[in-house]
C-alpha cells in the first residue's frame, strides 16, 4: 500500500492535469482568439464554450487538490516557489471568468471593455501556466537557464491552446467563422511546432536526470513511439490546414483530436521523465506522500466519484453536441 498509493495518486493527478489542458486549453485558446473576430463572431465563439468552461476549470482544482491531498509537502514547496506565476495566473482566470458574464450583463457601453478583459485574462493565464510548467520541469531553480526555459514554455503553451481553440471552433462553428479558424490555426501551428521542438531539445539539456532516462538503451527504443506519434499528428494537422477539404463532413474533429494526441504523448513523456520524483532531483513521491490512512480514505471517494464525473461530463457534452447556437437562458 505504501508503495502503490503514491503511484496511483500520481496517475490521478496526471490524468486531471491532462484533462485540464485539453479541456480548458480550448476555451483559453478561444479566449485568445476573440480579438480577431467581429462582434457577431465573438458572441458565437463565446457561446460555443459557455456551457463548458466552468467545469473545464474544475480540473485544475482537482489536479492541485490531488497534489495537496497526496503530496502535501510537495504541494507547499511547489506552490511557494511558483508564488508569482500562480498569483498572475489566478488573476488572469478571475478576469476571464467574470468577463464571460459581465460582457453581456454590465451594459452595452462596457461590452468592449469586458471583451478585452476576456482576451487579456485568457492570455495571462496561458502564459503563466506555461511558465509554471517550465519552472516545474527544471526543478524549481532560479538559474538563468531555467528562467530561459520557463520563458520558452510560456510562449509554447499558449500556441498549443490556440490550436486547441481553433480545433474546437472547427467542430462547433460554421461558415465564415470556421474558415477564419482555419486561417488562425495556420498562423499558430508554426510557433506551436517550433516551441514543441525546442522544448524537446532543451529538456534533456536542462535536466541531466531526464537526459539519462531518454538516451540510454533500451529505454530510448521504447520511447520512440512518443516522438513518432507526435510528428505524425503534427504532420496531419499541417496537411489538413493546407487542404481544408480534409476537415469536411464528419472530420471536423481532426485537428482537435490530433492536438489531444500530442498532449497525451507529451504528458506520457513527461510522466516517464519525472517518475519517481515529484520535485525533480528534490523529492520522490514516497517522500512527500500523506499518511496511508488519509490516502485510503480519499481513494474511496475518487474511485466512486471519478467515473461518475467522467460520465456526466460526457453527458453534458452530448447535450450540447453539434454546432453552437446563441446562448440563451430561455
Amino acid at each position: 500500500m505504501e508503495y502503490w498509493l503514491p503511484i496511483i495518486y500520481m496517475g490521478i493527478m496526471g490524468l486531471a492535469l491532462l484533462i485540464y489542458v485539453i479541456l480548458d486549453g480550448y476555451d483559453l485558446g478561444v479566449g485568445m482568439l476573440v480579438p480577431l473576430a467581429n462582434e457577431a463572431e465573438k458572441d458565437m465563439m463565446i457561446a460555443s464554450i459557455g456551457p463548458f468552461w466552468d467545469a473545464n476549470e474544475t480540473w485544475i482544482v482537482l489536479g492541485i487538490g490531488v497534489l495537496l491531498i497526496a503530496f502535501p509537502v510537495a504541494h507547499g514547496i511547489i506552490l511557494t516557489s511558483l508564488y508569482l506565476p500562480v498569483t498572475i495566473m489566478l488573476m488572469g482566470l478571475i478576469l476571464r471568468g467574470v468577463a464571460f458574464d459581465l460582457r453581456v450583463k454590465a451594459g452595452d457601453h462596457r461590452r468592449g471593455l469586458w471583451n478585452k478583459a476576456f482576451f487579456a485574462g485568457s492570455l495571462i493565464a496561458s502564459l503563466a501556466q506555461g511558465w509554471m510548467l517550465g519552472a516545474y520541469i527544471t526543478g524549481l531553480h532560479s538559474s538563468a537557464t531555467s528562467l530561459l526555459f520557463s520563458a520558452l514554455i510560456a510562449m509554447t503553451l499558449p500556441a498549443l491552446y490556440l490550436i486547441l481553440g481553433c480545433g474546437w471552433l472547427l467542430m462547433k462553428t460554421d461558415g465564415e467563422l470556421r474558415n477564419k479558424a482555419i486561417g488562425w490555426a495556420r498562423m499558430a501551428i508554426w510557433p506551436m511546432g517550433l516551441g514543441l521542438f525546442m522544448v524537446s531539445i532543451a529538456t534533456p539539456l536542462v535536466s541531466s536526470t531526464i537526459a539519462e532516462k531518454w538516451f540510454t538503451l533500451p529505454n530510448a527504443l521504447y520511447l520512440m513511439p512518443i516522438p513518432m506519434i507526435c510528428l505524425f499528428c503534427y504532420g496531419l494537422i499541417v496537411a489538413a490546414l493546407n487542404k481544408p477539404t480534409m476537415l469536411d463532413k464528419n472530420r471536423s474533429y481532426l485537428i482537435y483530436a490530433c492536438t489531444v494526441a500530442i498532449c497525451l504523448m507529451a504528458s506520457l513523456g513527461l510522466a516517464y521523465s519525472l517518475f519517481p520524483d515529484i520535485i525533480i532531483g528534490g523529492l520522490t513521491i514516497w517522500e512527500s506522500a500523506a499518511s496511508v490512512k488519509s490516502l485510503q480514505f480519499t481513494l474511496v471517494g475518487v474511485v466512486i466519484t471519478l467515473p461518475v464525473i467522467l460520465f456526466y461530463t460526457y453527458f453534458v457534452y452530448r447535450i450540447f453536441h453539434g454546432k453552437a447556437t446563441a446562448l440563451s437562458y430561455e
Binding site: 487538490g65 495537496l68 491531498i69 504541494h75 500523506a290 490512512k293 488519509s294 480519499t298 475518487v302 466519484t305
Partner: peptide, 14 residues
C-alpha cells in the same frame, strides 16, 4: 494535510 487534504478533496470530487 492528512485532514485538510481529504476534506477539500471530497469537496472537489463530490
Amino acid at each position: 494535510g492528512n485532514v485538510a487534504g481529504p476534506l477539500l478533496g471530497y469537496e472537489v470530487l463530490s
